[in-house]
Simulated assay, not measured.
Amino acid sequence: MPDPSQISRLDKLRITREYLAYQLQRTDTAIRELAAQEKQNRHRAEQARADQGWKIQPKRGEAPPILHRGGCATYKAKDGMLLDRGQARLAATHETYVVMCEICTPLASFAFSSSVCSRVAAASGDRQGSGCSREIASVRGGRPGRQD
């Protein structure tokens, strides 16, 4: 290696420039990676928020409105159109014309009494209420348990 005192000022500036270009490249790579990671984290947080909510698919023609879990892919709600647990429970129990999605089974997230099940079953056309009983059993880990 040559003696540092023997390197010209021009060569020193070229070496410095090369080193700074290397540092800039590493910094740009780190920025891209962090930006991608933040985007992925935001997407995960939005997905987790959606999974915790519920949404109602509007009535289409003669078909009644359908209650879905927030993460159900059969219906994409507009941003900010998610219901909280209380609103979804109210829609499921008091709105007799709302039917439950058969794919995401939103009833599984509630522990309903048998009287509520009969109203929901009647509204969805399940005369025996067996679907609701299965939902209650799934909420309780496969154990039917007590139903009021």
Results as ranks from 00 to 15, higher is better:
residue 33 E to A: 08
residue 46 E to H: 10
residue 6 Q to W: 09
residue 49 R to Q: 15
residue 93 T to A: 02
residue 8 S to M: 00
residue 57 Q to L: 00
residue 101 C to I: 00
residue 116 V to I: 11
residue 103 I to P: 02
residue 75 Y to R: 03
residue 66 I to S: 07
residue 30 A to Q: 14
residue 5 S to C: 00
residue 74 T to W: 13
residue 120 V to M: 14
residue 82 L to R: 12
residue 10 L to Q: 07
residue 112 F to M: 01
residue 94 H to F: 13
residue 88 A to V: 10
residue 76 K to M: 12
residue 104 C to S: 02
residue 86 G to S: 10
residue 55 K to L: 08
residue 75 Y to C: 08
residue 110 F to Q: 02
residue 36 A to G: 13
residue 55 K to T: 13
residue 148 D to K: 09
residue 77 A to V: 04
residue 84 D to V: 04
residue 32 R to P: 11
residue 29 T to Y: 07
residue 78 K to M: 01
residue 38 E to D: 13
residue 3 D to T: 05
residue 91 A to S: 00
residue 65 P to G: 03
residue 137 A to M: 06
residue 114 S to F: 03
residue 131 G to I: 04
residue 10 L to G: 01
residue 22 Y to T: 15
residue 40 Q to I: 07
residue 127 R to I: 01
residue 101 C to Y: 04
residue 50 A to V: 06
residue 72 C to Y: 01
residue 25 Q to D: 10
residue 147 Q to Y: 01
residue 27 T to I: 05
residue 34 L to H: 13
residue 55 K to N: 01
residue 126 D to Q: 00
residue 147 Q to D: 02
residue 95 E to N: 14
residue 10 L to R: 02
residue 111 A to R: 12
residue 70 G to K: 00
residue 114 S to I: 14
residue 115 S to T: 09
residue 103 I to V: 08
residue 19 Y to D: 13
residue 42 R to F: 04
residue 126 D to E: 01
residue 77 A to F: 08
residue 24 L to P: 02
residue 57 Q to I: 06
residue 48 A to W: 03
residue 97 Y to T: 09
residue 26 R to H: 10
residue 78 K to F: 11
residue 96 T to Q: 12
residue 96 T to F: 07
residue 54 W to S: 12
residue 52 Q to F: 02
residue 62 E to W: 14
residue 100 M to R: 06
residue 1 M to A: 09
residue 14 R to A: 05
residue 76 K to C: 10
residue 139 V to S: 01
residue 107 L to H: 07
residue 89 R to L: 13
residue 22 Y to C: 06
residue 147 Q to M: 02
residue 35 A to Y: 05
residue 85 R to I: 09
residue 26 R to Y: 07
residue 143 R to K: 02
residue 134 R to F: 05
residue 47 Q to R: 14
residue 23 Q to C: 12
residue 74 T to E: 11
residue 36 A to K: 05
residue 141 G to S: 10
residue 70 G to Q: 00
residue 50 A to C: 06
residue 23 Q to G: 08
residue 88 A to C: 04
residue 30 A to V: 07
residue 21 A to D: 09
residue 56 I to N: 03
residue 118 S to E: 02
residue 146 R to K: 15
residue 117 C to N: 09
residue 96 T to K: 15
residue 108 A to K: 05
residue 71 G to Y: 05
residue 34 L to M: 12
residue 133 S to H: 00
residue 135 E to V: 04
residue 123 A to V: 03
residue 136 I to H: 09
residue 9 R to S: 14
residue 106 P to F: 03
residue 81 M to L: 09
residue 4 P to F: 02
residue 131 G to M: 13
residue 75 Y to M: 06
residue 54 W to I: 09
residue 31 I to G: 00
residue 33 E to K: 11
residue 69 R to V: 06
residue 137 A to I: 01
residue 100 M to I: 00
residue 94 H to S: 14
residue 115 S to G: 06
residue 106 P to A: 10
residue 121 A to V: 09
residue 15 I to S: 15
residue 17 R to N: 11
residue 51 D to F: 04
residue 134 R to H: 11
residue 23 Q to H: 11
residue 102 E to C: 02
residue 20 L to Y: 08
residue 69 R to T: 02
residue 6 Q to V: 09
residue 46 E to Y: 11
residue 20 L to M: 12
residue 15 I to F: 15
residue 41 N to V: 08
residue 131 G to K: 07
residue 72 C to L: 06
residue 10 L to K: 03
residue 50 A to H: 07
residue 43 H to A: 15
residue 88 A to S: 04
residue 28 D to A: 12
residue 39 K to Q: 12
residue 72 C to A: 05
residue 95 E to S: 10
residue 41 N to A: 15
residue 92 A to M: 14
